[in-house]
C-alpha cells in the first residue's frame, strides 16, 4: 500500500504539526532536517509529508494527490472546495475581524473594504445584506484605510498589535480560525482505518494538552 500523503502548510503550522507528530511518538528527524526537499517520509505514521503553501494544500487534497491536509480555517473559508474537514487541531488560533479607524465601530457605514480575503469579505457583507466594494490588497492591508482607499479592512487578527500601532481598532469579529485537518472525500472512504488511527492518536494528544 502506498504511504498516505499529508500536505502541510509551510511555516508556522508546519512547526506546530511536527511538534504534534512528535508528541504522538513519531520520529520526524527527516522533516526537521529537510534541506530543500519538499516530500519527506514519516515512517512511524506510514505517511509522507508534502510541504506546500496554504492554498495549494487545499488544491492537492481536493484533487486527491494528497490524502490529508493541514491548513488554516482562514484559507478554507477563502478558497472553499469540496473535502472533509474532520479535526480542529486547536493551534494556529486567531480570528477574522473587521477593523477601521476610530474606536467607535461604524460597520453600517462601510462602503469600501480592503482585504487579502475578498471571498470571506464579500460573503460576510452579503450575509448582512450590505452592498460594499471589495478591494483586494496583497501586502499590508492596514495601509488601505490609512491612505483612504477603504473605510475598513477584513483581516486576520491575532494580538491586534499591528492594528493598534497604526491607529486601527477591531470593530467586529467575523469568524474564529485555527488549524484544521482536511481529507480527500474518496481517500476518506478507501483508507478509513489508516486515517482514523492517525486522527485518534492526534486527538488523544490534543485532548491531553487541554
Amino acid at each position: 500500500m502506498k504511504p498516505l500523503r499529508i500536505a502541510v502548510t509551510k511555516g508556522r503550522l508546519e512547526q506546530k504539526t511536527i511538534e504534534l507528530f512528535e508528541k504522538m511518538g513519531c520520529d520526524c528527524s527527516e522533516v526537521r532536517n529537510k534541506g530543500r526537499r519538499l516530500i519527506l517520509p514519516v515512517p512511524d505514521l506510514g505517511a509522507e509529508i508534502v510541504l506546500a503553501k496554504a492554498q495549494d494544500v487545499i488544491t492537492y487534497v481536493e484533487h486527491g494527490v494528497c490524502d490529508i491536509g493541514i491548513v488554516g480555517k482562514d484559507t478554507i473559508m477563502e478558497s472553499g472546495g469540496s473535502f472533509f474537514e474532520v479535526l480542529d487541531l486547536g493551534f494556529g488560533k486567531c480570528r477574522f475581524a473587521i477593523a477601521g479607524q476610530g474606536e467607535e465601530p461604524r460597520v453600517e457605514e462601510i462602503k469600501v473594504v480592503a482585504s487579502k480575503y475578498p471571498n470571506v469579505t464579500r460573503k460576510y457583507f452579503e450575509s448582512r445584506l450590505m452592498d460594499i466594494d471589495v478591494v483586494k490588497i496583497e501586502g499590508s492591508v492596514e495601509l488601505a484605510p490609512l491612505l483612504c482607499l477603504a473605510d475598513a479592512i477584513v483581516d486576520i487578527v491575532e494580538t491586534g498589535t499591528t492594528l493598534k500601532e497604526n491607529g486601527l481598532y477591531v470593530w467586529q469579529s467575523v469568524a474564529d480560525i485555527s488549524a484544521r485537518v482536511i481529507v480527500n472525500t474518496a481517500a476518506m472512504k478507501l483508507r478509513k482505518q489508516e486515517m482514523e488511527s492517525i486522527f485518534n492518536r492526534a486527538e488523544a494528544v490534543i485532548n491531553a494538552g487541554n
Binding site: 469540496s82 473535502f83 472533509f84 474537514e85 474532520v86 479535526l87 481529507v183 476518506m188
Partner: peptide, 11 residues
C-alpha cells in the same frame, strides 16, 4: 446538513 456532509465533527 453541510457540516455532516463535510464531516466537520468539531464544528
Amino acid at each position: 446538513r453541510s457540516l455532516i456532509e463535510s464531516k466537520s465533527y468539531a464544528a
